[in-house]
Design a protein around this nucleic acid. Structure first.
Lengths: 209, 209
DNA sequence: TGTACATCAGTGAACGCGCGTTCACTGATGTAC
DNA sequence: TGTACATCAGTGAACGCGCGTTCACTGATGTAC
């Protein structure tokens, strides 16, 4: 970046967010400092304050963007899965795991205690967040109506599936699963197996009930 | 604590660990500093260095102790569950979730990237850690032999159950699930429902296969 | 029981560091005429 | 097209802070005789 580009950078906001993501991906969100982000963007450490009120605002912006990206990805996967409700639900789950594993930077941002998907975001999803929980619920209900998930309250089913995919993502990212035999093929086969197993055995339970 | 007790404290190591746990429980592991821990124990900020080589050693000790406590709890729950392999497996899972939720301080310590149950601990469990993974695997195999889990490679089944319980614990601790309707009764009914549902539908799948 | 002494576990000053944030500033940019 | 000027987005010095860690020290403790 030339000296001229540095002045009236044009995209400093974006550059700062990307720099922050890179640092988070590399060393974790606790290690991310505004000063390092600024210096990585080739800018003085005071410059970010023209684009973010404070450090928390940067993290919040990342969380926001991350949720929107993940929801978009889940929407696309759901759409691509066709009409079968079970396939759509599986696609949502797989997209969740893949996003969490591929983008631990975003995932760390919107999973962070201060601005993650704690209380408020589930109850009052902001519009441009996407509505991950709502999407999951609708897919679960559609499966119930199609008879491939047991009838009754959909909430416990949604919690079950969210826990499963969230836990799988987390154990992978923590490194536990990556150390296990057969992990060489990456998260995708494992996620497919886990999700198919969940939906498959639940479908049996639905048929029985 | 009197001034006399402060000298040759006798239990400063324990007091430091307890103080660290309290701070972690209250504000998270990133906020825990050796200086604050020392001051909470009523001792100068240099005193901890007579008991821990550095800050990482403190966290490591907490992780170690936490794993041992959790394993002990799982062992007790398993024992108390009697002879039915499915009941034993469910008890293990429930104990995992309860420990994680009740002791987010320990959980944060042994889940932390630097000294958590990342790579090494699964492959080479230290003896006094307890062997959480091994316990889970044995319980899964026992269920397979009893015909209440599908036959075949037990590893994916164990991963499945670990992901489920880990994810449930994490979503609860993050606060997402606590904001949902019906969360007033705490984690236990939810955990029981989720675990029973998993084992129940898998048992159906086992009967079918 | 008393005394000398080694060891143990504290103290408090000091180090250098990186951090978030503020502030007066200045050079570049874009606009009105 | 040229000029005056408001605004925008940078700079760099400075602030106070808490941190991990080191160090020489000292008072308490326990033990050998």
């Amino acid at each position: 970046m030339s000296a001229k580009d540095a002045y009236h950078h044009g995209n400093l906001r974006r550059a700062l967010m990307d720099g922050a993501l890179a640092i988070i991906a590399e060393r974790g969100i606790e290690e991310m400092s505004l000063r390092e982000v600024a210096s990585a963007a080739g800018v003085s450490h005071a410059a970010p304050y023209h684009h973010f009120a404070d450090k928390a605002a940067l993290v919040h912006a990342l969380a926001h963007e991350g949720m929107a990206l993940m929801d978009a990805r889940m929407a696309a996967a759901e759409e691509a899965a066709g009409d079968d409700p079970a396939a759509r639900l599986a696609a949502i789950g797989l997209a969740y795991v893949e996003f969490a594993v591929e983008r631990p930077d975003y995932y760390a941002a919107f999973t962070s205690p201060e601005c993650g998907f704690g209380r408020g975001d589930v109850e009052e999803p902001e519009e441009d967040h996407g509505d991950t929980w709502g999407r999951l619920m609708r897919a679960v209900v559609a499966c119930q109506q199609a008879g491939c998930l047991p009838p009754g309250d959909p909430v416990p089913l949604a919690i079950y599936l969210w826990s499963l995919t969230h836990g799988l993502s987390e154990l992978w990212t923590l490194g536990v699963l990556q150390a296990m035999p057969g992990a060489g093929a990456g998260i995708r086969p494992l996620a497919e197996q886990v999700i198919d197993s969940a939906l498959g055995s639940m479908r049996l339970a639905a048929g029985r009930g």
